[in-house]
């Protein structure tokens, strides 16, 4: 059986200064459809680099990456753009909304690049998604008129616009207060329950506890992968223990 995401011996080496930096040093993992994965590790462990490569935002130095059965490591920039557009959704730590643009337009943007819907259908779907993330009636608001939590919901609605099978989240709660963080994570949990595959980078144990699988990285290598535990949620204490064990 083929996996949704399959990486083999993935390396990313920055040739900076005299000593090359090995951000990823031979990583091999598989992620199946419907999984909710948290990638953890200290800053500089390579977790963000891995997410960026998985999300086709960055290219690996070597190794193989198969997404949905297709090799993507050696695709053209245009093909990668189309893959990102159709198959991948992104949620960033700093939201990355277009400034001075209404929420509804932000959400519609991915379909503008795909051109799948008529403008009426697109607007309808954008309104539906805003309602889905709890922002009904806020479609005309611009980022400056929304709280951090609300901005991140707009970003999630945008990521869902083209119905991607995979959602990537890079520290999605990093810029949010505790209350907003819990709301966002509950939203992720709901999406996961609906069958969307979620790969999330975080360094907070309590946030990672929402995921069902945990990968801990250090120095560009995977230290712990609890896939064998069968996709059961862990408590924050269990996650903390896992991380401590991995980095010991």
């Amino acid at each position: 059986m083929s996996h949704l995401i399959e990486i083999r011996d993935l390396k990313k080496i920055y040739a900076q200064g005299e000593e090359p930096v090995r951000a990823l040093d031979g990583v091999s993992i598989d992620i199946d459809e419907g999984e909710f994965v948290a990638i953890m590790g200290a800053s500089g462990s390579g977790k963000s680099t891995m997410l960026n490569i998985l999300g086709c935002l960055d290219t690996p130095s070597s190794g193989s990456y198969r997404l949905d059965g297709l090799e993507v490591a050696a695709r053209s920039r245009k093909e990668l753009a189309i893959i990102r557009n159709r198959k991948l959704g992104f949620v960033f730590q700093n939201f990355n909304l277009l400034p001075r643009t209404s929420a509804i337009e932000q959400v519609e943007l991915p379909d503008l690049y795909m051109g799948r819907l008529t403008w009426r259908e697109r607007r309808k779907r954008a309104l539906m998604l805003l309602k889905r993330v709890g922002l009904e009636g806020r479609g005309t608001h611009k980022p400056s008129e929304l709280s951090g939590g609300q901005q991140q919901r707009v970003a999630i609605a945008r990521a869902l616009m083209n119905e991607p099978p995979v959602l990537f989240a890079d520290e999605p709660t990093g810029n949010l207060d505790t209350k907003s963080s819990i709301e966002i994570m509950n939203l992720f949990t709901e999406l996961s329950n609906e069958g969307i595959t979620i790969v999330m980078v975080t360094h907070e144990d309590d946030i990672a506890a929402y995921a069902k699988r945990h990968i801990v990285m250090r120095d560009g290598r995977v230290m712990v992968d609890d896939k064998a535990d069968g996709g059961v949620r862990k408590t924050t204490e269990q996650v903390s223990h896992l991380v401590k064990e991995a980095l010991a």
């Binding site: 245009k78 189309i82 990102r84 990355n96 991915p110 795909m114």
Partner: peptide, 16 residues
């Protein structure tokens, strides 16, 4: 340039 990065992340090709 940040805007361009975001648009590319959302699926805009270099040509677009």
């Amino acid at each position: 340039i940040k805007e361009i990065g975001l648009r590319m992340a959302l699926g805009a090709t270099p040509f677009m």
